[in-house]
Design a protein around this nucleic acid. Sequence first.
RNA 1: GCGGGCGUGGUGUAGCUGGUAUCACGUAGCCCUGCCACGGCUAAGACCCGGGUUCGAAUCCCGGCGCCCGCACCA
Length: 562
Amino acid sequence: MNDIYDEIMAIAKRRGIVYPSFDIYGGLSGFYSYGPIGTLLKDNIIEVWKKFYVVREGCLLIDTPNVVPYRILKASGHVDRFTDILVECERCKSKYRADKIIEDELKIDPSKISREEMFQILKKNDLKCPSCGGKLVNPREVNLMFRTEIGFGDVIKAFLRPETAQGIFVEFNILYNVAKKKLPMGVAQIGRGFRNEISPRQGVIRLREFNMAEVEVFFDPQKDDHPFFDEIKDEKVRVLTRDDVELEDTVGSLYKRGIIKGKLLAYYIGLTKRLLVTLGIDERKLRFRQHKVHELAHYAKDCWDAEIYLERFGWTEVVGIANRSSYDLTAHSRESGVELVAYRNLERPKKVIEKVIIPKYNILGPMLKDKLKPVEKALKEGNYEEVNDKIVVKIGENERVEIPKSAVEVKEEEKTIMVEKFVPWVVEPSYGIDRILYGVLEHSFTKDDRGYAYFRFKPYIAPIKVGVFPIVSKEPFTSIAKDIYLRFIREGILAYYDASDSIGRRYARMDEIGTPYCITVDGQTLEDSTVTVRDRDTRKQVRMKVDEAIKYVKERTTFRFY
RNA sequence: GCGGGCGUGGUGUAGCUGGUAUCACGUAGCCCUGCCACGGCUAAGACCCGGGUUCGAAUCCCGGCGCCCGCACCA
């Protein structure tokens, strides 16, 4: 196959953008490295992402471990969700997912049975291969997470994280506190995720180790809103609904029409569109696809993928924006025994009369001895009955203890309740950085009228901001050019000094890696200290003073909103 | 993981009816060059890995790895 992907990857390797890892050992599919230019590009993409989510949205940016103990991923459902049982046909060697076979052949809902039961079912029922009718044998687990272990001897089972999100959920209480207990609260994390894909064959699109940028927006499901909603609501997007209807509308209108099921969801779809376009994704090759009902994870209310069109891979998911409801917090709360909740103010404060029974310890202590503790607890929890002048306290299953009323102080307090607890819901925009980076490469890949290829990166994304050349490699041009180069460095702008080959070749080399500007020192520089500033896309030059040229480049290569 | 095809400098290729490798672009150095991959000279750089057959393997055979297509898997 010879397409734009090959062409881009050839340049990517030659110029140090991205290429297969472990090359001298023959390579290993699913692993790619970023070279010096690609790493700069990736960092610049992440910088813009941070401008959107950390600076603009005010998300709390955190960084949690890649290695995650078993319990956490068990609680989150990943241990089960990422473990498939495969069965194999004895005759034709086809592989099937056991749960799919059980569902199709026996009409049993596989989500309702355990793994052991599934093995039992496979043993008992003489299931046949759907394609050739052969016997299905050798059921075994396929786990898509990378296993590892922590420590020596009594090791703790662990995995490399399949997503960064779980690191956020388990720290909810700390973060909620840091955020002064205010919702909505966005928490962002940028990092690597790992998936032991069976056979990744889509180059840089399906990686076993990949970069992601995720946000978990915790919110009160009764207040599904965003303070900047009005600013985003007119963002127009192309969508493909779960009923396969293609249409174009603003996110505000899609929300009103009930197509996007949630205001926050609509907001982040709009924001994602703006971000992807800002990064250099072609708006005409971008759409948002709603997950079909059967495609939704059982905890998700609604889920939309941002998909970009790529020549080789077709419509490709680059961002997933899901409403995960309260699933994860509830799961981690159950497993850890730690309450993960937020508080909301009641609209009308409730007045309640609360009866509190305070034990008189000087009487109850000697009377109950070691039973004081359980009695105290039961009184607090209301597990008692008042019978005449006695209190019957229920401790444990059947055990009851009678104590005289005189041994306690009964207080009736009127309380005004202002807040109530709830488990926050989560909207999760999750970005695949590597896929976005490739999308930026492909969508900014351009051939000029002479057939020369280059990347039309947005100036703030470009790895190198400016090339600085002497018109010929001779004094005093070289010294002046080197001086200008150093002035850029001092400004913190990545510049590239080049005096080799012809001036045309140098422009071409800079074009190829998407450098937006080139400054050339020529004969006229000696007379009036002006230089030419060349624009990559138009190849037009403007002449200006050196000071202005530096300012000109700096202004245009620094990211700014709007 | 199964079936089919493929694997030659950084890239694209020729050679593949056994005798250490063609060409172009690119890269490095020098000369030339006062604005868009100019030209000249020079240099470096490859047979995916392992085993077998053979006096001799890029070439033939086997295995591995990788890539591509289909199935499966994944989202």
